[in-house]
Nucleic acid binder design. Structure first.
Lengths: 163, 163
DNA sequence: ACACTGACTTAGGCAAGTAATAGTCAGCTA
DNA sequence: TAGCTGACTATTACTTGCCTAAGTCAGTGT
């Protein structure tokens, strides 16, 4: 079947026969980052951490986990490891977000705002503001036409695969 | 310290002393959903699954995992379990997304579009379209002023806690 | 030359996620 | 009333995530 046909998202259930999600991007993404430690490492990268001890201390992870996770994230392409040197100091390594890593930010922001809303009795501990205008930043679903899109206003469309 | 002060996000690192993220909403959110199975169960819920066998079959999870995860998601408040009955059939249970569960959708969409972009050699298998206008749906970072916000244009602000 | 420090690695162990297989149980249907 | 079916539960086993504690190693400062 190579035509695109809506299988329907929305709260309402649509008939979809025995179609089963394959090559799902969500699952592929989770193969890369599926551990708590990977998410907090990335959080700290967005928060500005670059050195090994910054990651392990601020993310409150043990050294072995920090080392393993950093290695994995570098090998997956979300971080790059590069030597650097502060004056009067020896050469060190630091880890910086790649474009691939930076583009995962909406996931973290969406998780944060969901946690803020549903899991924080005492209100959120931090907030995100647009540097330019100071307004709060949120993750939103929008269509290319510019409309804000709610959970029940989405059609799921099957696409033909290249290979 | 009760004044709100920027600790700076953005690619650039800002001095932040020994501040360590506590009560982090991302971590709290991950306590609720941190397994692959929870994510795929939620995916299938968005895709329209409601019955036990729909979840286990479409998400390709074993029965025990499906049962455990559904129980957890119900107890966390993302799904509700309710009896229903089709004519001529016995009473069954079905699982439906609550508002809390539905609001996690931006996280899944953000994960999907990241996977689409970075992990799909042959292009994405499905696409999301706005029901009303047919345009592709994406998860975006925006401020309350309506500006689209990039990863490097965010200030992180510490907030005083209620308790 | 020697200690110090940052950045790891190794070893040992507990807990949790997942699968496969088999069994249970409550209605319906015949 | 006996069988069927959907929705589970129980058991066993494997694998992975994470921790603590200890060890390694290279480059600097003294």
């Amino acid at each position: 079947m190579s035509t695109t046909e809506p299988i329907a998202m929305t709260g309402a259930l649509a008939p979809r026969g025995d179609w089963v999600a394959r090559h799902c991007s969500i699952e592929k993404a989770l193969e890369v980052v599926h551990t708590r430690s990977a998410f907090v490492i990335l959080r700290e990268a967005y928060y500005g951490a670059t050195r090994f001890d910054e990651f392990s201390h601020r993310a409150r992870l043990s050294d072995p986990v920090t080392a393993t996770r950093l290695r994995e994230l570098v090998s997956a392409g979300l971080l790059v490891r590069e030597p650097y040197r502060e004056p009067g100091q020896r050469t060190r390594d630091r880890y910086r977000l790649t474009e691939m890593g930076a583009e995962l930010l909406p996931v973290l922001v969406a998780l944060m705002q969901w946690g803020d809303r549903w899991l924080q009795e005492d209100g959120p501990p931090v907030a995100l503001r647009h540097t330019a205008c100071g307004e709060p930043v949120t993750a939103q679903l929008r269509c290319a036409g510019g409309h804000e899109v709610g959970p029940g206003e989405i059609d799921l469309v099957r696409l033909p695969r290249a290979r």
